[in-house]
């Protein structure tokens, strides 16, 4: 093995001998480098989980937004053809809207009587629920928000806010919560409730600081 390695020049050997010495880095540079390394480590300890979830969340959001837009587009086209959008069910009358503050996304029914519900009946879908239930709840979310979008396209902001409130009650942390809250801001702005729109936009920014809709929302209330 050694025979493959050429003999070094004797003059070069002297230089290489001196060159093998590894000088010590100054204490200042050493301390600075270690401090930077610690900071890097601290930052990377936080980052690994976040980008994955944020990337997945963002891609999901984009996909949902796209599907929602397609659904709304189809509904608007249908409405344009028929002249008016039929609303088959109207569970929340507009009067309910005024009794509730618009930005209560986690609001629960105000006074629940002391009757303990039977354990077999769950009031709202849980995260660990059966997959089919999750799909159904998503379909219900999408349906509700699509109608709200149609109402928004028709500039019926009270109707929009009613549907948004209904969505907030049924799916406070649903998969389309971000879209719902964005729609709420736009509906408040459209209905001329500027102060509430500002507050809703601020709450939206707090809750969804990385939302792709945030730049547009922060511009709209102006």
């Amino acid at each position: 093995m050694k025979s493959h390695i050429p003999q070094a020049d004797p003059e070069l050997d002297v230089l290489l001998e001196d060159g093998r010495v590894i000088p010590r880095v100054s204490e200042v540079v050493r301390a600075r480098s270690l401090s930077r390394a610690r900071a890097t480590m601290a930052a990377m300890a936080v980052i690994p989980r976040e980008p994955l979830s944020s990337v997945r969340r963002r891609s999901l959001t984009i996909a949902l937004a796209a599907s929602l837009a397609m659904g709304v587009g189809a509904a608007v086209a249908t409405a344009a053809l028929r002249g008016r959008v039929p609303s088959p069910s109207q569970p929340a009358p507009p009067a309910v809207l005024h009794t509730q503050r618009p930005m209560h996304t986690l609001d629960v029914p105000p006074s629940r009587p002391s009757i303990v519900p039977p354990p077999a009946v769950t009031a709202r879908p849980q995260r660990w629920a059966h997959p089919a239930t999750a799909q159904e709840s998503y379909a219900a979310e999408l349906d509700l928000l699509a109608r709200a979008q149609v109402a928004y396209a028709a500039r019926e902001f009270a109707d929009v806010l009613a549907r948004v409130a209904e969505h907030g009650r049924k799916f406070p942390n649903g998969r389309l919560a971000e879209e719902r809250e964005a729609l709420r801001v736009r509906a408040l702005e459209g209905s001329g409730r500027t102060e509430e729109a500002h507050r809703a936009a601020a709450t939206f920014a707090d809750r969804f600081p990385r939302s792709i809709m945030l730049p547009r929302l922060s511009r709209e209330p102006r």
Binding site: G19, I22, P23, R24, V25, V29, R30, R32, S33, L34, R36, A37, T40, M44
Partner: peptide
């Protein structure tokens, strides 16, 4: 760290780049 700084220097890193490159190695 001494070895890294020396190695970077031997490999031709400019003195003002060595600290940043050492951080990249640490990452």
């Amino acid at each position: 760290i001494d070895y890294l700084f020396t190695t970077l220097k031997r490999l031709g890193a400019a003195p003002h780049e060595i600290e940043d490159l050492a951080q990249e190695i640490f990452v």
